[in-house]
C-alpha cells in the first residue's frame, strides 16, 4: 500500500447515492472487459445534479467530454456517501475514473464494504466536515500512516479516523487477498 495519496480533490455534498455515482441504465456493461469497462469511468458521477457537481460552486463535470478518466484522485464527500443500491459498479466506476480514496463524514454500509472488500479505493472517514473547507481542484495529500489529509493549496491539515478493523483488508487489497494471506482460503 502506498503511504501517501496525492492529487486533485473533487468535492461533493451529502447523500451521494449510487444512482448518482453510476446511473442504473449503465449497469449493463462488462466489468471484466478492459475496453468495455472504461464506460464505467466515463459515466462515473454523471447523475450528480449540475449545481452540486464539484463544490463549492458546482457546474464542474467530474469527467470531461468523452474521457473515461478524471483529473481528480481524491473525492471529498459529506455524510452517508454511497447510499442506495448494492451495486459494486459504484466504487468500481470511481476507481476506473482514477479515484484512489474518498474522504467523507460517513458511508452507507454496502458501499463501504464494496470499496474495502473489492479493494477498489480507500474510504476514509473525516473527523470533521471537510466539504466546506476543501474546494474542487485543490491539491490534497492523504498521509496513510498518520491518518491525515492536508490541503496543499492552503497548507491546512485535518485528522482522519483510523481504518480500524478493516485496515488489514485494505492493506491486503481486498477480502480475497486477506483471506488467502490468513489461510481461510487457498
Amino acid at each position: 500500500m502506498e503511504s501517501r495519496i496525492t492529487g486533485k480533490a473533487y468535492v461533493l455534498g451529502n447523500n451521494i447515492d449510487t444512482d448518482q455515482i453510476i446511473p442504473a441504465e449503465h449497469l449493463v456493461y462488462s466489468l471484466s472487459d478492459e475496453e468495455e469497462s472504461k464506460k464505467y469511468g466515463h459515466f462515473a458521477l454523471s447523475s450528480v445534479p449540475v449545481n452540486e457537481a464539484g463544490l463549492p460552486n458546482g457546474g464542474i463535470p467530474f469527467i470531461e467530454g468523452e474521457n473515461w478518466q478524471a483529473e481528480y484522485r481524491i473525492i471529498i464527500g459529506g455524510s452517508n456517501f454511497g447510499c442506495g443500491s448494492s451495486r459494486e459498479h459504484a466504487p468500481f466506476a470511481l476507481q476506473k475514473a482514477g479515484v484512489k480514496a474518498i474522504v467523507a463524514e460517513s458511508y452507507a454500509r454496502i458501499f463501504y464494504r464494496n470499496s474495502v472488500d473489492g479493494g477498489f479505493l480507500i474510504p476514509y472517514e473525516s473527523t470533521q466536515k471537510l466539504n466546506n473547507v476543501i474546494k474542487t481542484g485543490d491539491e490534497v495529500e492523504i498521509d496513510l500512516e498518520n491518518n491525515s489529509i492536508t490541503n496543499l493549496t492552503d497548507g491546512k491539515e485535518y485528522q482522519l479516523k483510523e481504518l480500524g478493523e478493516v485496515l488489514p483488508i485494505v492493506e491486503a487489497g481486498g477480502v480475497f487477498n486477506y483471506a488467502r494471506a490468513s489461510g481461510m482460503i487457498s
Partner: peptide, 29 residues
C-alpha cells in the same frame, strides 16, 4: 447482491445486501 435483500427480514430471518466481491466470496466459501 441487492440492497433490498433486507425485505426477507419480514420472515424473522437475517437478510442483507452485499456487493459482487462479497457474494463471490460467499459463493466459494
Amino acid at each position: 447482491t441487492d440492497s433490498h435483500t433486507c425485505t426477507s427480514g419480514a420472515f424473522g430471518m437475517f437478510a442483507t445486501g452485499v456487493g459482487n466481491t462479497d457474494a463471490a466470496f460467499i459463493l466459494g466459501t
